[in-house]
């Protein structure tokens, strides 16, 4: 009888504590903090189509990523981004390239527009390296430019950027992520401007 009473009491106490206090989630917006100056005349002769950025399964989540030790990754439990990183990065790339006016027009792939060139991007890594406080945000992006007429790969590159996180928490990681992405977009624009047209 006593055993049953103790088990019942433990079950009751366990049930009462199921939804204990939890920290509220904060949602951060991934932003491009830079601008591109438009040239007088487009460098490329035809429209550019931007394919949506590919990303590993780990980064197909709105939770922000961090790493406390080399070769490991984790997700912040109470910090999220308002949009998945891959589609957001493709959107910001399109906005930045439209500003730069390197191409006569820039449109998403599949929007019903015919284009002479296609930009493929792959998000390889994007995390807050928190091994040391306050840490830094690392971004690794693979980019390739394709001529659609004859399916010819014109150029491919890897863009790797790092930006310090102002604080050792999710807020610092979000600010560092914006800075790292801005650097990457600067380098992408410069790279597209110097590819030889053959």
């Amino acid at each position: 009888m006593n055993t049953r009473l103790i088990i019942f009491s433990l079950l009751f106490l366990g049930a009462c504590s199921l939804s204990g206090p939890r920290q509220a989630a904060t949602w951060y917006v991934l932003e491009d903090q830079g601008t591109a100056s438009a040239g007088a005349k487009p460098t490329w002769p035809d429209t550019l189509l931007i394919r949506e950025t590919d990303a590993p399964t780990f980064y197909q989540s709105s939770a922000m990523a961090y790493s406390r030790a080399p070769g490991t990754r984790g997700h912040y439990q109470y910090a999220r981004q308002t949009e998945l990183p891959a589609p957001r990065i493709a959107q910001l790339i399109r906005q930045r390239l439209e500003q730069s006016a390197l191409f006569p027009a820039v449109a998403p792939l599949g929007s019903g527009v015919e284009g002479g060139y296609q930009l493929n991007t792959r998000l390889l890594d994007f995390y807050h390296d928190a091994a040391r406080a306050p840490g830094e945000v690392r971004l690794l992006l693979e980019v390739e430019l394709v001529r659609r007429g004859d399916a010819h790969l014109l150029a491919r590159t890897r863009i790797e950027t790092q930006a310090p996180a102002p604080s050792h928490d999710a807020r610092g990681a979000a600010q560092g992520a914006n800075a790292a992405l801005t650097q990457a977009l600067d380098r992408l624009t410069a790279w597209l401007g110097q590819i030889p047209r053959s």
Binding site: L18, S19, G20, P21, R22, Q23, M64, Y66, R68, G74, H75, Y76, Q77, Y78, A79, H128, A130, A133, G135, S167, H168, D169, A170, R171, G172, A173
Partner: peptide
């Protein structure tokens, strides 16, 4: 879902 994330999964600066 029931108990929230384990303590070891919390990111830098996060607490339960």
């Amino acid at each position: 879902i029931l108990f929230g994330p384990p303590q070891g999964n919390l990111g830098p600066g996060e607490e339960r």
